[in-house]
């Protein structure tokens, strides 16, 4: 009898905790949407904030975010995939493999403030890139590298060895085999890593505040599009933080809604590709 009561109590606590977690989550999403949906208008998304014209808008920040995403991905995807290929296909089991794996895991655990400090002194000062979108992208490259490496590695591990032997036995050289057999089979895993990286980049603020700065203007046309890379620019998350510290809460909640939508899309896409990878694993 006592045991039944005790079990019931513990079960009750478990239900309570789960209920609490779910309510908390639902509350967060609903609250942000209710508070922020009012500021998200077409003009909010397509204009730049200006005191003269009296407009409040985040177009510049959206463009900056796209710049940072593209720049970072262009740098990080080849490095991450290359690193995973080396770990899984070339390196075997040696000391350097353990070192690469340990450092990759360490990179994943370093807080973004530290990345911000390092990016500021290394890319900004030592390499002389200053406060620019490029500095920000290079800093983020180090931050999301583990995501790409690990997901690619997982995906490569899931490719059956028979594919490798088959290709090599038919006379394929190793790189040819990797390029035409392994990478296509590992594609869902790689894409998952890339999408997760995009999610992380979009949400990052501490690492970008000291590296990419806080500019919010649109790039000029023509050559200006290219020059923008060397100019400072705040992403959506950075602008959210800045608006918050200036007590412009309407703008802040508006950006929060936009970010939330992006996160939902990112999670949805990740789910699709992870399912594909799992289906491939089961075969």
């Amino acid at each position: 009898m006592v045991r039944k009561i005790k079990d019931g109590l513990i079960l009750g606590t478990i239900y309570l905790a789960a209920f609490f977690s779910v309510v908390l989550l639902a509350g967060i999403i609903v609250y942000v949407c209710v508070k922020g949906i009012g500021s998200v208008r077409w003009s909010f998304l397509t204009t730049v904030s200006s005191v003269l014209k009296g407009t409040v808008g985040i177009a510049g920040n959206i463009v900056n975010t796209l710049y940072v995403i593209i720049l970072t991905l262009v740098i990080v995807i080849p490095i991450g995939i290359g690193s995973a290929i080396w770990l899984n296909e070339y390196a075997g089991k040696s000391r350097s493999v353990r070192l690469v794996e340990f450092t990759t895991q360490t990179l994943a655990g370093i807080p973004s403030v530290i990345f911000g400090l390092f990016g500021m002194v290394f890319f900004g000062t030592t390499l002389g890139l200053g406060y620019s979108l490029l500095t920000g992208a290079l800093t983020l490259t180090l931050m999301v590298l583990p995501l790409i490496t690990r997901n690619t590695q997982e995906a490569l591990r899931a490719v059956p060895d028979s594919y490798r032997y088959g290709a090599v036995c038919m006379g394929a050289a190793k790189w040819y085999m990797i390029r035409t057999v392994l990478l296509p089979s590992a594609m869902p895993g790689i894409v998952t890593g890339v999408i997760l990286a995009v999610g992380r980049i979009v949400g990052e603020s501490a690492a970008l505040l000291f590296t990419a700065g806080s500019g919010y203007l649109l790039p000029g046309s023509g050559e200006g599009l290219f020059h923008k890379i060397m100019e400072s620019g705040g992403t959506l998350a950075v602008q959210l933080y800045l608006s918050m510290s200036k007590a412009q809460y309407d703008t802040a909640f508006g950006i929060a809604v936009v970010l939330l939508c992006i996160v939902v899309i990112v999670n949805f896409l990740t789910g699709i590709f992870a399912d594909k990878l799992n289906a491939a694993l089961r075969k």
Partner: peptide
């Protein structure tokens, strides 16, 4: 839902 919670940018938590 839990995964969504993990993906929400930290500044949004700060705002809340």
């Amino acid at each position: 839902a839990v995964e969504l919670l993990a993906g929400i940018p930290s500044v949004v938590y700060g705002l809340l």
